[in-house]
Write a protein that binds this DNA or RNA. Structure first.
Lengths: 262, 262
DNA sequence: AAACGCCAAATTGTCGACAATTATCATTTT
DNA sequence: AAAATGATAATTGTCGACAATTTGGCGTTT
């Protein structure tokens, strides 16, 4: 009886969600042979997660426990537990006797989120620069190389996941357990939601160049520089996402008034 | 069937009713009888919380859902939900099909926790220095004054709660919602557990002097200084707690070996 | 028309029972 | 004796039903 090597028992590794996402509206349990069979709540958790991140459950919309449970062919118990976990991941907001809603995407929350993320990942860089192991560094450089060649080939498909992986590995290398839990267990899912729904295809080109410089700084054990570069890198991402979010909300507002007029 | 009166909702207002004078933020709602009935899970949550923080449920010990539920005269459903919330607060560690344990207090986790806290509260100070409102500042200064006079009178009772309130108010003044949630919803309960079980009576004298300087820096809108002072202040607290924790564990180890010999 | 109060419907909270999994311990095996 | 094995007990996961609370509509009132 031997358990997996991931550090976080609470969560899935982000790279695993890439292709598991294309199967909504079905009962899960069979087709096993997967190592899964953990618990029903955990299984539907990742499904609801991706539904929210992709916007299939629209931001701000009400979530009905019964309907969700029926959709996945299970009872309300596990559904409820999944919802509470989603609350911890900030993808859902719950109120007693009122129910759960998908988190709303607002500019001010985006700024709060990125401001916090910036500080935390800056910290992660500083720690990683002094504590990263040769193996971890090699893995990070490999990932970077893969992304760079993919970019050169115009392969934009796994860009998003690759970026998540990049930050993920640095966070892991920081070695601070509570920092890891805060970022990965608490902030990263909401972050992915913002980025998925406010994505900008042009950005990756520059982003990967920034990644390279960050990795170089870490390799040289220059934590201060790595932290600075990371904070700038994240600020770039924030600006980008903010612009897209603003126009997205402008569109929504326009559509709203149109509907009201008719 | 079941009734208890020491109930404040999920995690707002960390200080108890001890010195309500220092926290006039409460809406007037609390005076209208008890209107307590939010939800059973929330009610027992705070009870288990304090049991854990005080060590009545020893660090590292197993938690039996059934037994807990019976102890409070409720069913396993709400108990389970409370446990999941406690997991988010890092007071409990859960594993599928295995159950829940009270978090363990270790030196390395303590250091991780304080390292993270230091960064986050430094950030809070910087934000607070630029965004605190006159009312919030006045409240903060009032709190400080109360603590100072209490200290002058040798009144050491509410020291602990007062300190929590101090940090709490600064975090509130930062205005960053995600930062607040991370610190208060995620880290602060575990912090209180460490401090309660590794307390040092001598420290408050110096701590309050440090508080004063931090408040002054904030009042002068000097975020950089406030952040620096706060990080030093927290580092002092870490050292203190670490020493106590080490000797506490040494005692436990000694008792262990003694038991094994006999 | 807007606001208020009341009743019905929908939704969430709680419970007890059962199923699935893990932990315990006596027994056997090396 | 230590380790592996297998049956049994204890504990966690899941379900369906019921209770408590909120939501939405409807008629009345101002």
């Amino acid at each position: 009886m031997l358990k997996q090597e991931t550090i976080f028992p609470t969560d899935d590794t982000p790279s695993s969600v890439a292709h598991a996402a294309t199967s909504p509206t079905n009962k899960v349990k069979s087709l096993a042979s997967e190592k899964s069979s953990t618990t029903l709540a955990d299984q539907i958790l990742v499904q609801i997660q991706t539904s929210i991140i992709k916007g299939e459950l629209p931001a701000g919309s009400k979530i009905n426990e019964q309907a969700l449970a029926e959709k996945y062919g299970i009872s309300r118990g596990p559904t409820r537990e999944a919802l509470q976990t989603l609350e911890r991941q900030r993808l859902v907001v719950r109120a007693p006797h009122v129910g759960a809603r998908v988190a709303q995407l607002t500019v001010s929350e985006l700024n709060d989120l990125y401001q916090l993320r910036s500080v935390l990942e800056g910290m992660a860089c500083e720690l990683a620069a002094s504590r990263i192991t040769p193996e971890q560094l090699a893995k990070l450089q490999d990932l970077l190389a893969v992304q760079e060649t993919a970019l050169a080939n115009g392969d934009t498909y796994f860009q998003e996941e690759g970026d998540v992986d990049f930050h993920y590995q640095i966070i892991q290398a920081s070695g601070n357990k509570h920092l890891q839990e805060t970022l990965i267990g608490g902030l990263y899912h909401l972050l992915r939601m913002y980025r998925y729904q406010c994505t900008n295809k042009n950005r990756p080109v520059k982003a990967i160049a920034e990644h390279r410089r960050i990795v170089e700084a870490i390799a040289q054990r220059d934590g201060e520089l790595a932290s600075l570069l990371m904070r700038r890198h994240i600020e770039q991402g924030r600006k980008n996402t903010e612009l897209r979010l603003i126009e997205l909300q402008a569109n929504a507002a326009a559509k709203e008034t149109l509907a009201n007029i008719s």
